[in-house]
Amino acid sequence: MKPFEYVRVKDARQAAQALGTERDQAKILAGGTDLLGEMKDYLVTPARLVNIKTIPNLDKIEHDDKKGLKLGALVTLSRLAEDKNVRERYTALAQAIDLSAMPQIRNAATIGGNLCQRPRCWYYRDEHTICLKKGGSKCYAVEGENQYHAILGGGPCYIVHPSDPAPALVALGARVVITDGTKTREVPLEQFFILPAQNVRRENILAQNEIITHVLVPAPAPGTRSVYLKEREKDSYDWALASAAVVVTPNAGSVGAARVVLGGVAPVPWRVAEAEKALVGQPLNPATLARAAEAALAGATPLEKNGYKVPLAQAVVRRALSLTMA
């Protein structure tokens, strides 16, 4: 690992100053579970780490029956999943965390950091492969071993977003609060993530000197059920081959409102409006589930080795929707 300077900050303004404006010369340290691994593999070589865990009051879980959840960016995944209110009312989020990484990592990893983690594409993670995402001229997945890559939203790079909580939070309508210590902006989480076509070097809109301070999750409408379901190659400590976060609000025997967001299949949490349209106004019967699943993957364009993800993701969507009735 390249030696670096270590700085502790007390507020967002100090963080912004310490982070500076030169891209990746300084990196934000919170749980460090992704960043330290990246540094050891020389994927990033910052001259400075800015520890934001010393900023007070960003580790709170605040509940309000009307306004919903206000999560400090430094809340660890395990604390979030243990929260009784989160488990009961924001079920998909708790389920997504249960299926993330492993217990020790969940103890250290923060929700803000989880949303900012880098992709797990094996070309990107290989120190010696200079792919598009690292400033190279080529995405090696296109003609290479692409069984774990994107079937939706890919090009020119075909990563999939590695977070499980992110699709759940997008489905629950979360927003993120971002600040550089002077200007604060609140952005729908859905718009926080960006596609490789927009900027192949980044996965989100965070500027070099900005940090996430909070994640806001609106209170679900009465009767709403949410489910997160994930299929992976091995049953422990693995990333999603395909996952789905679904949020369904019933209305007189049929679906009043629905959100369907896919994980593990696209460079960002992939919300599918077509699948949501196929659900609204319909009873949740097998025919509706099949139509929604079909619609969810209608736009898929698999690479040579990841065609299996289409029926897999369809099955995950169908099953997640049926679990909202359980």
């Binding site: 270590y6 340290l29 691994g37 050891k40 020790q104 103890n107 250290a108």
Partner: peptide
């Protein structure tokens, strides 16, 4: 060395964490 195997786990304020990716500062 990358929090993938658990050999380095210690308790930090009672919770198991991977010490190989925890900075001394934290």
């Amino acid at each position: 060395g990358e929090a993938r195997c658990g050999a380095c786990v210690v308790l930090m304020d009672g919770r198991p964490v991977p010490a190989c990716v925890t900075s001394a500062g934290s």
